[in-house]
């Protein structure tokens, strides 16, 4: 697997893996790249080049995870990236999946109770995911930011040092949903609507696994380090 470098052109990177477009957006990088390289655009937009490269390479290759390097970046950078990812899920991806699901439901030849089960399963999954995201936004990120920026030590002590349980629950249910759809549901729907829905689930899963990996291995150990300073 190739590793992207600072001399690589942005359009080549996207040609290589278009799933990186939303990751680019999280850094405020938008298409119309012309022939700009990573180095040029990072300088222009005042982005930490090494951080950007580490994240796109990690995202691009599930086996690549430069743990030590990622830990060396400021927790503020990590939190900022994670927050943008959350916003992407809440404002774009979950509503999109919901839209595709309701399109699929309305394409059903007959209203069947079985399909209702899938819908309720997804509704519950979504609720749990939103609670988990809100919990991090309210009870984890602010403590990290306050500590690093203003040296407020009081609250970091209460920040959790593991999200693995919640994450594996989120990943498990998403994988269950896919299996139920692909293995066990009778095909009483429009095929194209079904395919669109399922591919959005796969894409979401990929993003969320990468996101959880950064929280579980990088943010958590940074919080542990911050706690030691109190």
């Amino acid at each position: 697997m190739q590793l992207f470098q600072s001399t690589d052109k942005l359009f080549r990177i996207i040609n290589n893996n278009y799933n990186l477009l939303p990751v680019f957006n999280r850094f405020g990088i938008h298409p119309g790249f012309k022939d700009k390289t990573v180095e040029q655009v990072c300088k222009e937009k005042n982005i930490n080049k090494d951080f950007f490269l580490a994240l796109i390479n990690t995202y691009n290759n599930p086996d690549y995870f430069p743990e030590e390097e990622l830990k060396s970046f400021s927790p503020l950078l990590i939190v900022d990236y994670l927050k943008k990812t959350h916003a992407y899920y809440l404002l774009y991806f979950l509503p999109k999946i919901e839209r595709l699901l309701s399109k699929l439901v309305s394409s059903n030849i007959e209203t069947n109770s079985e399909f209702k089960m899938i819908v309720s399963f997804f509704e519950n999954y979504k609720k749990e995911l939103i609670i988990h995201i809100k919990d991090e936004e309210d009870n984890v990120f602010p403590h990290v930011i306050n500590f690093v920026q203003d040296h407020q030590k009081s609250n970091i002590k209460n920040a959790p040092t593991s999200f693995e349980k919640e994450h594996s629950n989120v990943e498990m249910k998403l994988s269950d949903l896919k299996n139920l759809l692909i293995k066990y549901l009778d095909p009483v729907y429009d095929n194209n609507d079904f395919n669109e829905f399922v591919s959005s689930l796969y894409q979401f899963e990929k993003d969320i696994i990468d996101h959880a990996r950064i929280e579980d291995h990088i943010l958590v150990s940074q919080i542990k380090e911050l706690k030691k300073l109190t």
Partner: peptide
């Protein structure tokens, strides 16, 4: 066997 892990699944 089923490939489903969660109780609700």
């Amino acid at each position: 066997k089923l490939g489903i892990k969660s109780i609700s699944g």
